[in-house]
């Protein structure tokens, strides 16, 4: 059964053409899907709908059995705690919290005990090679390090789906390569991954399936072997 089901979804901003027009897409558990397309093609809009950061004007969105098209903000927040890990292009870390505090935050919101959350965070930070920065504040870290903190935060609650919006867009090539490797490794371990990017090489490296959007519609949907 698909973990993500998007059926006939339309999302329009203002009077212009829709950002997404009657789009239908499914994602199976364990898939790594790259959403490609030029600026304005609807990639980030689709990601936002899957993350319940936004609501469609019409159509249905179901993720992990949760219907998202008419969901309220409170329910959306609880859904994200339970099922979604988000990685943003510009990291979106809270700069007044330390690295460790940023990472444990979703787990604490979900009700995980302090000690358990701290243990899990430490494990993740170590796995990502940034445990020495646990007590530092994000402003002190490089872009690559910050994105790895964001990945750790996204993985805290063992999400059903990991969503990444241009995860290497703000990074240099070396840091970007680190993040690519991370995402690939996570997917190899069974993590369902939906990745939005305009970077063909990132899509080729990290995803086994490429969905190409143009003007809010799916132009192509190709399953390829990922270059790992």
């Amino acid at each position: 059964m698909p973990v993500i089901e998007v059926h006939g979804v339309t999302r329009r901003y203002g009077e212009g053409p829709p950002a997404l027009g009657d789009l239908t897409l499914t994602v199976e558990p364990g898939e790594a899907v790259a959403i490609l397309g030029p600026s304005g093609s609807g990639k980030s809009t689709l990601l936002n709908l899957i993350a319940a950061l936004d609501r469609p004007d019409s159509g249905t969105v179901t993720v992990a059995g949760v219907s998202l098209d008419r969901i309220g903000e409170a329910a959306a927040a609880r859904y994200r705690r339970a099922h979604i890990g988000m990685i943003f292009q510009f990291f979106n870390l809270l700069d007044d919290l330390s690295v460790a505090e940023n990472v444990v935050l979703p787990a604490r919101l979900a009700g995980m005990g302090r000690a358990e959350a701290a243990r899990r965070a430490a494990t993740l930070l170590e796995a990502l090679g940034i445990d020495r920065h646990a007590s530092a504040y994000p402003g002190r870290l490089s872009g690559g390090e910050r994105q790895r903190v964001a990945v750790a935060r996204a993985l805290m609650n063992e999400p059903t789906v990991l969503l990444a919006d241009e995860p290497t867009g703000a990074l240099d090539s070396a840091s970007g390569q680190e993040v690519r490797r991370l995402l690939t490794d996570l997917n190899r371990e069974g993590q369902t991954l939906v990745l939005v990017t305009h970077d063909e090489s990132l899509a080729a490296q990290c995803a086994s399936r490429t969905v190409r959007l143009m003007d809010g519609l799916i132009e192509s949907d190709v399953t390829v072997g990922a270059d790992r």
Binding site: L53, A74, A77, R80, R81, L94, P106, L109, R153
Partner: peptide, 16 residues
């Protein structure tokens, strides 16, 4: 606003 958006994105409800 951005901070509020991030908090909501990682699971804060509007009431929180």
């Amino acid at each position: 606003t951005l901070r509020i958006g991030v908090l909501k994105a990682i699971g804060f409800t509007p009431a929180q």
